[in-house]
C-alpha cells in the first residue's frame, strides 16, 4: 500500500501545477520505447483531457425514483444546504450542492472523485430546513448513497 501511495505521489511530479491535475488522468508509462529511444516515465507521460463531451441524466433519473430522492429536480444550486452543513465545514469535500449538480449533469469523472464523501452525511437535517425549494437535501443524500452503492453511478455511458 505504501509503495502504491508513493507511486501515486510521484506520478507527474515534474508538472508544476500538479495539484490541479487529477491523478487518474495522468498516464505515466513504466516502459515506453520507440526506435531504440527510451521514453519511459516522464518522457512518455500524457495527461488526458478533461473536457465534458456529453450530459448524461440517467443516474439523476434513477435518484428521482428512489425514496426521498423525488424532489431533487427542484434544486437550483443556491448553495444554502452546503452553507449550513456542519459536515461540509469540517470537510469541504462533502458538498451537497455540488453532489446534486454533478449527478444531475452526469459528470462521471467528478462523481468518481467525490462520491465516497456522500457517506459523511450525518443526517442532521439542517440542510432540509434551510432549503428554499424544498428539495430535502438530507433525503437526497440518502438516495444518492443508495444509488452510488447499487452501482448506478457507473450507469448511463
Amino acid at each position: 500500500m505504501a509503495a502504491e501511495e508513493r507511486k501515486k505521489e510521484e506520478k507527474g511530479r515534474f508538472i508544476a501545477e500538479r495539484r490541479y491535475v487529477d491523478d487518474q488522468r495522468i498516464v505515466e508509462p513504466e516502459k515506453l520505447e520507440a526506435g531504440g529511444v527510451d521514453m519511459s516515465g516522464r518522457w512518455g507521460t500524457l495527461v488526458l483531457p478533461r473536457t465534458i463531451e456529453e450530459f448524461d441524466h440517467s443516474l439523476f433519473e434513477g435518484v428521482k425514483r428512489l425514496p426521498r430522492g423525488g424532489k431533487v429536480g427542484k434544486c437550483w444550486q443556491c448553495g444554502n444546504c452546503t452553507a449550513v452543513c456542519p459536515v461540509a465545514h469540517a470537510n469541504p469535500m462533502f458538498n451537497p450542492r455540488y453532489l446534486i449538480h454533478i449527478v444531475r449533469m452526469g459528470y462521471q469523472a467528478e462523481i468518481e472523485k467525490v462520491k465516497d464523501y456522500v457517506y459523511l452525511c450525518s443526517g442532521c437535517g439542517l440542510c432540509s430546513a434551510a432549503c428554499p425549494k424544498d428539495v430535502d437535501p438530507q433525503g437526497v443524500m440518502i438516495a444518492l448513497s443508495i444509488a452510488f452503492k447499487s452501482g448506478r453511478a457507473k450507469g448511463g455511458r
Binding site: 515534474f14 508538472i15 508544476a16 507521460t45 500524457l46 488526458l48 483531457p49
Partner: peptide, 18 residues
C-alpha cells in the same frame, strides 16, 4: 512557453489531444 521546455507532459498532451 515554459511548458514546452520544462513541462512537456502538458504541452504534448494538449498538442496531441486538442
Amino acid at each position: 512557453f515554459r511548458h514546452i521546455l520544462t513541462e512537456r507532459e502538458i504541452s504534448r498532451s494538449f498538442a496531441y489531444f486538442r
